[in-house]
Design a protein around this nucleic acid. Structure first.
Length: 197
DNA sequence: CTCACGATTAGA
DNA sequence: CTAATCGTGAGA
C-alpha cells in the first residue's frame, strides 16, 4: 500500500480533499501494533468566511493557528471537555481550511482498537464518530500540529480501487453557523455502516 | 480574571 | 433525551 508523503496531495481545497480522502486509510502504530482504518465520513471547513470553522474568528488564536499552516498537518482539539476531534489541514499556508474526519472503519488491529474502547462491545460503535475514532486510535493533543507526511506513528495510505458511491449532506452539530449550517460539506461512503449519521 | 459553551458520547 | 466535563476565546 502506498503511503501519502507528498504535500501537494493536501494542497487543494478542503471540499476536494474531503472527497479525495474517502476510502483511503488512516494508519496508526502504537507500541509496535498496527491499526489501519478506512476513512468513510468527512466534513470540510472552508476558512475564515465559513462561520462553522474555527478559523471564522479571523485573528489567529492559539487554537486555530495550525489551520494557517501548510496542508498535511494535523489539527486536534478537545470538545466538551472530554473528546478529541481529528482534522487534517487542507490547502496552502495562510488558507485556513481543514477536513474533519467523522468516521472510520477498522481494517487491521481490531484487537488494539477494542482494548482502547473497553466497555464498547458492538463493533459498529468502535469508530462511528469523531470522538470514538480518536479514542480507538489513541489520538489526542499530542498529535496536534504534527506533520502527517512525515510521522512514524500516524500516516495515510492510498487505496487503489474506490468502488463506492459518495453521498453529500449537511454538516453535523453546527447550528450556530447561520447561513453556513446548510452547506452540504459533509461527505460519506454510501451504505457504509460506520458512517455516524 | 471570569464565564459561557462546544465540529460529542454513553447511558437512562 | 440529557448530563458530563474542561480548555478555549471573548469580554471586563
Amino acid at each position: 500500500m502506498e503511503k501519502i508523503v507528498n504535500r501537494d496531495y493536501f494542497r487543494i481545497s478542503a471540499n476536494d480533499l474531503a472527497i479525495k480522502l474517502l476510502g483511503n486509510y488512516l494508519c496508526r502504530e502504537i507500541s509496535g501494533k498496527l491499526i489501519k482504518t478506512k476513512i468513510v465520513e468527512t466534513e470540510a471547513y472552508m476558512g475564515e468566511f465559513d462561520k462553522a470553522s474555527h478559523a471564522s474568528t479571523k485573528n489567529k488564536t492559539e487554537r486555530n493557528s495550525i489551520l494557517y499552516m501548510d496542508g498535511g498537518h494535523v489539527y486536534i482539539y478537545l470538545i466538551y471537555g472530554k473528546y478529541y476531534c481529528f482534522n487534517i489541514v487542507a490547502n496552502r499556508k495562510r488558507k485556513p481550511e481543514s477536513v474533519f474526519i467523522r468516521a472510520v472503519e477498522p481494517v487491521e488491529g481490531l484487537e488494539t482498537i477494542k482494548k482502547n474502547r473497553k466497555n464498547i462491545h458492538k463493533e459498529i460503535e468502535l469508530t462511528n464518530g469523531p470522538g470514538k475514532l480518536s479514542m480507538a486510535l489513541e489520538l489526542d493533543k499530542e498529535f496536534n500540529k504534527k506533520d502527517l507526511t512525515n510521522n512514524k506513528y500516524l500516516w495515510l495510505e492510498k487505496k487503489s480501487n474506490k468502488n463506492f458511491k459518495i453521498k453529500r449532506d449537511r454538516r453535523v452539530n453546527i447550528d450556530y453557523a447561520e447561513e453556513f449550517k446548510n452547506k452540504k460539506w459533509r461527505f460519506y461512503i454510501m451504505n457504509n455502516r460506520f458512517v455516524s449519521n
